[in-house]
């Protein structure tokens, strides 16, 4: 019997330059089981983010930080990070550049 995975209801907050890339949008509420799904849903809501978040090979761009609540997703599970109801995903321009 196939287990149905219940999607979590999360909020994605866009910070800094990523608000501009999403035409000024500050946050999006969506449903996803993993960080990867959340990013896909985010791009569905704001297609202009697609090329700003991933290169032509689908890899997340450098200088893009993704936090789930207070934790850097790199130390959680990357894009496979599991999400729970009420989680906040932060899309942040990394502290880099000059």
């Amino acid at each position: 019997m196939t287990e149905t995975v219940r999607r979590a209801r999360v909020k994605v907050l866009l910070h800094g330059a990523y608000r501009g890339f999403a035409d000024g949008a500050r946050d999006v509420t969506l449903e996803a089981t993993t960080l990867r799904e959340a990013l896909e849903a985010l791009v569905q809501a704001h297609p202009s983010l697609k090329e700003r978040m991933r290169d032509e090979h689908g890899r997340l761009r450098r200088h893009l930080s993704l936090f789930v609540n207070e934790e850097d997703s790199r130390f959680l599970g990357g894009e496979d990070t599991k999400l729970s109801d009420g989680d906040i995903v932060h899309v942040i321009p990394a502290l880099s550049g000059g």
Binding site: A17, Y18, E51, R52, R61, H63, L64, P93, S96, G97
Partner: peptide
Amino acid sequence: NMTWGGSR
């Protein structure tokens, strides 16, 4: 050639 969001 933006750092954040990639070049365009």
